[in-house]
Design a protein around this nucleic acid. Sequence first.
RNA 1: UGUCCGAUGGUGUAACUGGCAACACGUCUGAUUUUGGUUCAGAAGAGUCCAGGUUCGAGCCCUGGUCGGACAACCA
Length: 566
Amino acid sequence: MADIVDNKDRTDKKSLNFIESIVERDIKDYPENKSILTRFPPEPNGYLHIGHAKSICLNFGLAEAYGGKCNLRFDDTNPETEETEYVDSIKEDIRWLGFDWENREYYASDYFDRLYDFAILLIKKGFAYIDDQSAEEVSATRGTPTKPGIESPYRGRPVGENLDLFERMKNGEFPNGSKLLRAKIDMSSPNMWLRDPALYRIKKVSHHRTGDAWCIYPMYDFAHGQSDYIEGITHSICTLEFEVHRPLYDWLLDHIAEGPRPHQYEFARLNLNYTVMSKRRLLELVNGKYVNGWDDPRMPTISAMRRRGYTPVSIRNFSERVGVAKRDNIIDVAFLEHAVREDLNKIAQRRMAVLDPVKLVIVNYTEGKVESLKARNNPENEEDGFREVPFGRELYIEREDFMEDPPKKFFRLVPGGEVRLKYAYIIKCEEVVKNPETGEIIEIRCSYDPDTKSGMTGSQRKVKGTIHWVSIDQSIKTEVRLYDRLFIDEDPAGKKDGTDFKDYLNPNSLKILKDVPVEPSIIGAKPLNKFQFERKGYFCLDPDSSSDKLIFNRTVTLRDTWAKKK
RNA sequence: UGUCCGAUGGUGUAACUGGCAACACGUCUGAUUUUGGUUCAGAAGAGUCCAGGUUCGAGCCCUGGUCGGACAACCA
């Protein structure tokens, strides 16, 4: 990971985000051999997205920076929504991003026995009770943020009875929803989470890891903090919506923990414009077939970004640069795109492909002759060397690279004008052949100057533009998928006018191009290999490709100041 | 009429114990360029939500507002 841009050199006084400041404050008091322990705690009920990537980079990055460790812990306390498929995808994504949790792969479900014991401890201390009210009653008596709740009639149940009932809950004696273990705190607290929150509920559902061993499962609030405590987490970092849970997090630990305890800190989650980030909405897009699965390259999931051609380095750089703070934010996708271009520019080999081809014939070039031209693989990295590109009398060029009536600053091919064919010759447009019926240009006829072959002194001649091309006879036909933003609105999910986020889906977010000619050196490309198609953008070989059908995903276009002028 | 959190160029973050607003993206010039890419040089753009106060001095501290967000699943 040496190629991560290191703008976080701790030897000089770089500015710290507020969490780093907290860590630096805390480690001052640590003994020599001790450091921080963080954790990334995903719930395996969906795929990870770019927002999770930020959290992963934060938690693992903090550990890395301060000589600590970061655990991977699955928060698997709700078997109804959790699946092994998600566990696997999450592990793959974290690994791909370049982080290693070594042997510290934990599950809240590993702690079900201890959590159960903690619950008994709480009951014995008189801090928890079994409530026989229905979910509706519990909800109705909770009050509102401005009105206090009403105490449950079962609140005063004796400890012995609570203990007995809790055990029988565990043994499966009661139906789902008939009983609930609640903390006994304060039904009139202004903090809703302190109004006797649920700790354990009955759910006769088999769990993806513990099977049918349990029919009661701990709630998030009871599982999370206690798991942090069990693992010896020092800094438990989560997003802002858990801020109101912190008093409960601390309350539980107050009554359970002995010795060193974890502390929770909250930061503002990452938001990106022109997309949605909640798992619920992403799941809706997947289930409703608005996209082709979790890894559809238009999705903001890590697996989708991987398939689209993003690199781990680019995502890590991005995550680092967006910063960590507590105020709400919406990051411009352009910022993300800048991060990929920056990395891809350095590592992607260049190839020529013509996305919207028009035939070009070089009238004075010998028929049937094929030359092999040398082309640099990557001007940003000389070690990538050269490849051979076949050149012949009939080529494809980009339709938009020719104009009969060009605007002032157009410096591509025009009637009677000259242009350089990259790596090849300077050509001059002599004639345009059109379909007499439609007026569509079907062929551009040019002459070439044999003295202007790249590398020859004649090639020094100044021409106004250089365009890319592909020799028709030697070209490989491929499929190219052009992606655009999934939504036409910056904040599709933030509407208060009753519209649904799906109302803002971009109907042109995917455009499939068939039979795109690419230079033959593309043969042998492997899934996820990244290329820059000269002047067009960065592309990545889709894993759905086969040896006789290559499919490319456009990761991102090149910066295009010309397109902006138009 | 509750509690908690937040507010700095278009966007995102900085500004160490108060010392005269910085960096990145974006935008706009210009140079270089066999990618209208990259690179390089430069510019514009905020006076820090508002009103008071403390201070020689406030984005940082205090008071009161305003605006935004979170919280009323047996979800996490």
